[in-house]
Each structure stands twice: as structure tokens, then as C-alpha cells.
Nucleic acid binder design. Structure first.
Lengths: 242, 242
DNA sequence: CGATTACTTGAGGCCTGTCAATGATGGTGG
DNA sequence: CCACCATCATTGACAGGCCTCAAGTAATCG
């Protein structure tokens, strides 16, 4: 059974911007259904257009660009509340692929109706642009981490971010969050080799700062993690939910 | 004397998406004036809001994030046609600073009227979102270059991109384009040290592929530059002009 | 129970950063 | 007009962070 937007569990969270009743009603018309995806499923493919756009309702995934020689750059991680397909929507084709890394549930929208969102609901159009701007901020931070930080700092930064982003959507359980990724995914996201990523994670574990096992990430010392990452406590900007 | 949007020299270029007469008329009302900036001027500051938004009409600049320890990550280069201040517009504050590196002329808009753009002109709102999406694509490419490529490839990629982006706005003169940056700027953009950037540029010069002197970038062997950069001939997506 | 996938661990080397010094250029003030 | 200073480009020496190669363990699966 498909969740109605009026019952959407994400929308009530502080992490997401408020939405008026009329906006919710509009979204119920915009939403066309739901899609379930299993780990490994490619939800959108780099270089292709798509008739559908999505919002992640449950589960996690990742965005990546693939190079000719088989290497890839992970450019982001998909978590509940994230919108998928903005580029396909407004530019015709995706510049990256999106793949599920856990079981996922996605709200689906018709791309062909995206224009009606702009023409009939400027508030939602504004929010969609905000989503794009938030994504831009994230990419700027990631670029800064990869360009300027050493391996240990990069990893600490990434794990710190993960924890708080997931906790913000209610997935935190004590000091841990689900984390359905491989070390290779993190390595590809941070521009590090798998081997070096592994050794750095070991060091962080030996220092009793974080542990990452069995698809779960647990933070044992928030203070030191923040110190390692060179960030002050989480300041996640609230974002609109599409 | 301020240029009217109807006379805007940029709008007619193939690089920018078509704009209807009514859209041009709307933009004339949206535009509030022009601003001149000299090299070194900070146009927008990281972490601050702004009452104005801009479009680069002439000249060049760069976007960068500054770290506490003084290092910085250059996250982009501003060239004619680029919109400045999207984040300040929709999120309240910029996540990076924008600074002029040459004399610049900027169209100015009131941030307070951004909402009217969404509510009264969905076509323009759509275009603004496209601008954000294009920026996202660029950041994804940059992240891939910094995360996956070696120094020489990164630099070749960047120079190749610069040339074609500038040529697309009519600044190409034979095989060269204006290039008002320092080697430090390129180094900070690509996550390289100044010294290594310098040595890699020397190598590219010795190999007679490109020369960069006197604020000009000249390409001497396009084929080899593309080969070094691992890209096929330029495929710049057309973008909307705001 | 062989094949596959993911995680670990060790060894060696290179790409790139850091340190340091020198030129080249342009602006400034006496 | 020249000493002085600041900025930027250049070059050499050296070290180190990270990559690559290689091998081994553990867990899952048909």
C-alpha cells in the first residue's frame, strides 16, 4: 500500500521545511506511485533521460559517475528525503547514476508533469530550487574535503556527516545508524584507495572513535570525531522535501 | 551607461538558451542596475546573506571556500553569463565567497524580488533551477577530477574546460583566451600544491601543448590536450542566462 | 565445497607536498 | 632615479602520505 503524502512520516521531521496543507495536496496529485528497489538496482543511469523522478522514502543508495576505465567517483549518498532526478528533470539527462545499496522505497513522479509544478505551484518550484542549492552546498563541501584534507580528516568528516544526516531522519539508535555501504564506496567518494581507506578506518577504530561493522556505523567519541573532522557540532541546514 | 537586457550581447550567443521577448521584458524589470568590480574585490562573502544577486556580464572571477587555517578550496570560476548568489537567494547565505580576478561588470538584481520571479514567471523559475543543475554537474565533474585523476590530467582537464567555456562566450582569439588567474588559484581549485602545479604546467609547456603567460591561456595542440585530459571534444551544455 | 565478495594486512615505491631559495615584475617613497 | 617591498613564478632537494601489488581470512551462496 502506497503512503499518502498527508501521512508522510518524513514531512513532520524538523529536518525538513514546513509544508502547507495546499502544498501537501498538490504533492499528492504529483506523486504517481511508489517503487521498491533492492540493493544493486540501478535507479537512474548516467547519460540517460528518465520518465520518472523520485524521492527517497526509505532506504539508502549512492550517486556515482563512472569513468571509461572502470573507476568511479561517488558524488553523494542517497538518504530518506533526498530527491533523485533533478538533472534528468530540467536538463534531459543525468550526469551520474543512482543505485540502491539497501532495500529502498521511492515515491515516483512523472517527469512530464514537472513543468506543471513550476507553472502552477511557485512555492514548490522555489523549494525544488532550494533542493538544488542544498545539493550544491554539499558538493562544495565534498570538493573541499577531497581537495584539501588528508585521508583521516576526510574519513572523519564523512562519517560525522553521515551520522548526523541519518539521525536527522530518525534513523539514529543510541550512538549508531544503519550504514549499508562498502569500504570501496567510501573510498570512491573520498578519492582514496580501498587499502588506505581500510587502514585509516582501522586506526579510527583502534582509537575508539568510531566502529563500522555489519552495516552499522557507531560513534564512540563525538568530541574527538568532530576534532578529527575539523568541524564544530552538526549544523545541518533544514531542507525542503519534494 | 547600463546595458538593457534587450541589447544584452550574451543572450544572442548559441551557448545560452533562447529567451522569449516577454522573458527579456521581465528581466529588464528584474534587473536593477550594474556593478563594476576591480580585481581583488569580494563580491559575495561566505556565510553572509546579500541583498543583491548578480549575473556576470563581463570579466572573470572565482568562487572559493576558506578554511580556518587559511587554506582555501576554489570551487569554481566565474565567467560571463554565470549567475552569482543562488544560495544567498534561496537559502539565505552563501557557502562560498565570490571574488573578482579581473575588472568585472555585473548585472544586479534585488534578492527581495526573487520570489516574484517564481510567482510570476515560471519559465524563468525553471531556468534558474536549470542553472543550479548545471552548476551541480560542473561540481560533480570537478569532484571526479580531483578525486580520481593525477595532477597532469587534472590540469589538462581544467585548461581544456576553460578554453571552451571562454570561447563559447566569444572571448576566444585564435587559439587563446584571457585568463586572469594565478597559478595558486588553479592549484587551490584542483587540490594541488602551488609547486607541483607550477612544475606540471612547465611540463605541459615543454611538451608544446599549452602556454599560460601574461594572463592569457593559449592552446597549441588541441588533440593532445584532449588526450591528456581524457575527454573527447568539448560538449558544453547550453545553459539559461539569468 | 569451490566460487564470489568484502575486509585485512604487509611491503615497496612513486606521486605529490613541504621547505627553501632565486628571479622577475611592478608599485612606492625618499 | 634608485632602494625597498610585495607579489608571483620558478627550480631543486627531500620527505612522506598514499597507491599499487600481493596474499590471506572470513562470510555467503548455489
Amino acid at each position: 500500500m502506497s503512503t499518502k503524502c498527508s501521512d508522510c512520516p518524513l514531512r513532520k521531521m524538523d529536518f525538513f521545511a514546513e509544508m502547507s496543507a495546499s502544498e501537501v495536496a498538490f504533492m499528492e496529485g504529483f506523486k504517481t506511485g511508489e517503487l521498491e528497489a533492492q540493493p544493486g538496482t540501478e535507479i537512474m543511469a548516467q547519460g540517460q533521460s528518465s520518465t520518472h523522478l523520485f524521492t527517497c522514502l526509505e532506504g539508502m543508495g549512492l550517486r556515482h559517475r563512472t569513468l571509461e576505465d572502470g573507476r568511479r567517483q561517488v558524488i553523494g549518498f542517497v538518504m530518506p528525503g533526498d530527491f533523485i532526478g533533478l538533472q534528468a528533470g530540467v536538463m534531459g539527462e543525468m550526469d551520474h547514476s543512482v543505485e540502491a545499496t539497501s532495500d529502498m522505497r521511492l515515491c515516483t513522479f512523472n517527469r512530464s508533469e514537472l513543468w506543471s509544478l513550476f507553472s502552477s505551484n511557485p512555492t514548490r518550484a522555489y523549494d525544488l530550487t532550494r533542493v538544488a542549492a542544498v545539493e550544491e552546498v554539499f558538493l562544495g563541501e565534498a570538493l573541499t574535503a577531497v581537495g584539501q584534507m588528508q585521508a583521516r580528516v576526510r574519513i572523519a568528516w564523512a562519517l560525522h556527516r553521515f551520522y548526523h544526516r541519518l539521525a536527522a531522519v530518525g534513523l539514529g539508535d543510541g550512538n549508531s545508524v544503519p550504514f549499508p555501504y562498502r569500504q570501496q564506496d567510501l573510498a570512491d567518494a573520498l578519492g582514496l584507495s580501498l587499502v588506505h581507506t581500510n587502514k585509516t578506518l582501522s586506526a579510527l577504530r583502534d582509537d575508539q572513535i568510531v566502529t563500522w561493522t555489519e552495516q552499522r556505523l557507531a560513534i564512540h567519541d563525538f568530541g574527538r570525531l568532530e576534532a578529527e573532522a575539523g568541524v564544530d557540532a552538526a549544523k545541518l541546514v533544514s531542507r525542503p522535501l519534494i
